[in-house]
Design a protein around this nucleic acid. Structure first.
Lengths: 154, 154
DNA sequence: TATTGTTATACTCTATAACTATA
DNA sequence: TATAGTTATAGAGTATAACAATA
């Protein structure tokens, strides 16, 4: 094992695809692409953590604990992120009607705006790359995206 | 825009794939998958930063500056990472033969061992997911992996 | 007594600035 | 004078522990 690439370099399509070989290829490709996406997203108004929380809130208001569990962070960390969002006017706290302990967090119009901006900024680099591909490659990536979504959702 | 998913939910294969629509789908899928990969890799002996540096060193010894540039971090940060690796015996420093200022960093046998372990651990979760797919889906992912590699390399 | 959320504190990782040594 | 690398220090971001308010 001395090569740079951990696994195969050409797509082995003649025989069946072995699960562990594919896993190595896909893991490498996904990690490398996600790294580029993060790098190319510099200049965002909001941090990556704030971004994903805003994306969750865009689907509907949620309690602090729900957000913390979804993001796999502890409650104090989520308090910090939510504080940053409310300080900037991108999210708002409402007291829970039935349970006085809980707090409902919701996205504001300004938050929806900054979310849309951040999304297009983060997507710009990738869109440019994708535009240079053949229609066949785009179709492959589109199918792969949906397969990956299902795999990672479970 | 009120749905959880930022873009389409079913693969639109009938007509041509729009670059920006595909970019959103692919970005979401890649970021979500990479996040799961990181989460499922808990218990690693080495940190993510140490892991990628070891992977670079496995291709051959390099100077600290070369490593810093490849990883897109500053020199002091790379000093820290290399220190952690050498303290654990996973990498070693050698003085450059011609230039006394430079330092060559290389991977040790112990480093190669821990790298292989970390790789299989990080791959295990994904391999399990991939094993449950149809042969057609595996082929799609394999092709997509190679397309993404090329896109992110440039 | 259990749960939601906040505050206090410490740790990790990164960056910029200042420094040492070599060229 | 310029470059390679280290050390000093500060700024994000996260975690655990302790606390306040409510159920």
């Amino acid at each position: 094992m001395t090569a740079t690439n951990p696994a195969s370099t050409a797509a082995p399509e003649a025989e069946g695809i072995r699960a562990d070989t594919l896993a190595i290829d896909l893991r490498t490709a996904v990690m490398r692409t996600s790294r580029r996406l993060r790098i190319e997203a510099t200049g965002d108004v909001i941090t990556p953590g704030q971004y994903t929380v805003l994306a969750h809130l865009n689907a509907g208001s949620q309690t602090l604990r729900e957000l913390a569990e979804r993001e796999h962070v502890q409650a104090p960390s989520m308090t910090r992120i939510v504080n940053a969002l409310t300080d900037q006017g991108f999210a708002a706290r409402q007291s829970h009607p039935g349970d006085g302990r809980q707090v409902q967090i919701s996205i504001t119009p300004a938050g929806q705006e900054v979310l849309a901006e951040a999304r297009s900024q983060r997507t710009a680099w990738l869109a440019q790359r994708v535009a240079g591909l053949s229609e066949e490659d785009r179709l492959t990536l589109s199918r792969a995206a949906h397969i990956m979504q299902e795999m990672s959702a479970k």
